[in-house]
């Protein structure tokens, strides 16, 4: 058996699994998105409607609201997770006796299931019993408890805090891995050449960290676009502003449309749209990185 045949042979199980649990459902979803299939409106039948669902989406205020929320919260939380995650990694990498503590603290939010994290923050920010309100009132910063989760703006803020808390450790973990792969001689050489620590970081460490951060970035962007679990458990997409939820993301809208409203056709189209958004962002980014080569 040639090496190439062997390679193909070894790839076969992965390819089969990929085909069965990824490719097949993906193609089925795209196919479904071209048909009407609303279980609560059986009188509509299941006629082929082509791209009608996609055209409907452009006039679907709820979809546009969810898309706006997804992009808004996505941008803030991805930026936030890097602003906090990278310094966290530097602390965990630095020679210090407390390094292990920083590493444990870094792992904890990452290891916590998203729904549990959301419930913890829901309690922290509870309007009546929450620790945050207790602190605010005790410190005389507010007279009455603040209704964090029923105010559209504040609920968005709590969502952002929760997601950044949860995802910063992911960025930190990947960044830490990257930091450990950078040979110490390089930073030492910079020091010998008279670079300050800050210059060393900007000119040597950060560029070498680039590939690791790029990977973290892509994963974060995709998970931010697809975010469902934390907002669903934390705010359920609410509170409502106008007709729609202030924190309803595309993921939540897809879930509601498909599993609650039982509109499988439109739900499939929404899923494909979400896929397209993730793909577009990723492709843009990959092109951008390649352009820098």
């Amino acid at each position: 058996m040639g090496e190439e045949t062997l390679a193909l042979f070894l790839l076969l199980p992965a390819a089969l699994i990929f085909g069965a649990v990824m490719l097949y459902p993906m193609l089925t979803t795209i196919y479904n998105s071209l048909f009407v299939n609303s279980l609560t409106e059986p009188y509509l039948g299941t006629p082929f409607v082509g791209l009608k669902h996609y055209a409907d989406m452009l006039h679907d205020a709820r979809f546009l609201n969810a898309l706006k929320n997804t992009l808004l919260y996505g941008t803030i939380t991805v930026a936030g997770s890097f602003l906090i995650g990278v310094p966290m990694a530097l602390v965990a990498h630095a020679e210090s006796r407390l390094r292990w503590l920083a590493r444990v603290a870094m792992l904890l939010p990452w290891a916590m299931p998203p729904v549990i994290s959301a419930l913890i923050f829901q309690w922290l920010f509870n309007g009546q019993y929450g620790v945050m309100n207790d602190l605010l009132v005790r410190l005389h910063l507010t007279r009455n408890p603040v209704a964090f989760l029923t105010n559209p703006l504040l609920a968005g803020l709590v969502l952002v805090i929760t997601v950044i808390w949860k995802t910063s450790s992911f960025v930190a973990l990947i960044a830490l891995g990257g930091l450990q792969g950078i040979p110490q001689e390089l930073t030492e050489a910079a020091e010998v050449d008279g670079a300050s620590r800050l210059q060393g970081f900007w000119r040597v460490t950060l560029p070498l960290l680039g590939p690791a951060l790029a990977v973290a970035f892509i994963f974060r962007v995709i998970s931010a676009i697809q975010v469902f679990d934390i907002p669903y458990a934390l705010t359920g997409g609410g509170p409502s502003v106008g007709q729609y939820g202030a924190t309803e993301t595309l993921g939540i809208y897809i879930y509601r449309t498909t599993l609650e409203f039982l509109d499988f056709g439109y739900g499939a189209a929404l899923s494909v749209a979400l896929f397209a958004v993730s793909l577009a962002v990723t492709a843009l980014y990959v092109r951008f990185v390649r352009g820098g080569e």
Binding site: P25, N32, A268, F275, T282
Partner: peptide, 26 residues
Amino acid sequence: APKKAVLLGSLLITAGLLAAGPALAQ
């Protein structure tokens, strides 16, 4: 190429979400 692997990897992840609910109807 590593860049291609990254793209491929992200494709796999995005595809994951598509595997959810709607396929059931079929």
